[in-house]
Design a protein around this nucleic acid. Structure first.
Length: 256
DNA sequence: ATGGTTGTGTTACAA
């Protein structure tokens, strides 16, 4: 089962890119972030016509996450537990073919330091608690999306330039490592242990052409899911097209 | 060079 994640930076602006990618890459499950629209404005029919079931957790103008699946989508959970006052649409979870999947859009956290950074820290602590709970079930799960975290310096094209950016701060890296130490596997690093392999390039200053990117989109696998993963790759193709998202998809294949 | 771009949705804010 092929599971992909992609921050599309507006599903309505990106629908030509998304439909061509779904047709060509043909993931069983696609986890999308930054829909930037309410559920009623999600372009359902264009995607349903390609054979996908859809669940969305939208929000006007900002954030928004979705799960697309060629297989039935069961037991949908909207929102990350742990803060009833949090109204930002950044988390949706469901079961597909016995695999629990989550589409995650972690807060960006800039400027650092500040309230937005503190919100990001709190959000990540809640994600850690959710991961701990899911681990007690001892089932396959994949927590995938835009983590807005560079785990190591090599995941950033210019660490000096990013010294004061929220993406690389040690408080966040520590929490990312906490997820790994709980037993989760960074699927990409399981197959590509080191190297500069990015998933996001700024629209500005020719970042894509110069490969000035960061690796911030991740697929974290439960122990039993990690036993089944046979491939994980970044698909750079969509980033090079006309009117692209600033992120590109990353996917893994589970042998169920 | 304290720059540059894209999106939402109105001209500011987020990324």
């Amino acid at each position: 089962m092929k599971i992909a994640t992609w921050n599309v930076n507006s599903i309505n602006a990106r629908i030509p890119r998304v439909t061509e990618w779904l047709s060509e890459a043909s993931p069983d499950v696609a986890l999308l972030q930054e829909l930037k629209c309410v559920d009623e404005k999600f372009p359902r029919t264009e995607i349903e016509d390609l054979g996908y079931n859809i669940v969305t957790h939208g929000q006007k103008s900002y954030n928004g996450v979705a799960i697309l699946s060629k297989h039935p989508i069961e037991d949908v959970m909207i929102g990350l537990p742990g803060d009833d006052s949090d109204e930002q649409a950044r988390y949706i979870e469901a079961t597909i073919n016995t695999v629990r999947v989550a589409s995650i859009y972690l807060p960006n956290g800039n400027p650092y330091p500040g309230e937005k950074f503190d919100y990001k820290i709190g959000w990540m602590d809640r994600l850690i608690e959710r991961a701990k709970y899911l681990l007690t079930l001892e089932e396959d799960f994949v927590l995938a999306g835009d983590y807005n975290v560079c785990p190591k310096d090599e995941d950033c094209y210019d660490i000096v330039r990013f010294a004061n950016d929220a993406l690389v701060q040690p408080e966040l890296r520590d929490r990312f490592y906490t997820l790994l130490n709980l037993g989760l596997t960074d699927a990409f690093r399981a197959f590509t242990p080191s190297g500069r392999n990015y998933t996001y390039w700024d629209y500005q200053a020719g970042a894509w052409q110069k490969d000035n990117g960061v690796r911030i989109d991740h697929l974290l696998l439960s122990p039993t899911a990690a036993d089944k993963v046979i491939k994980c790759e970044i698909d750079r193709t969509p980033r090079g097209k006309e009117r692209p998202s600033d992120h590109t998809p990353i996917w893994c294949e589970l042998s169920l």
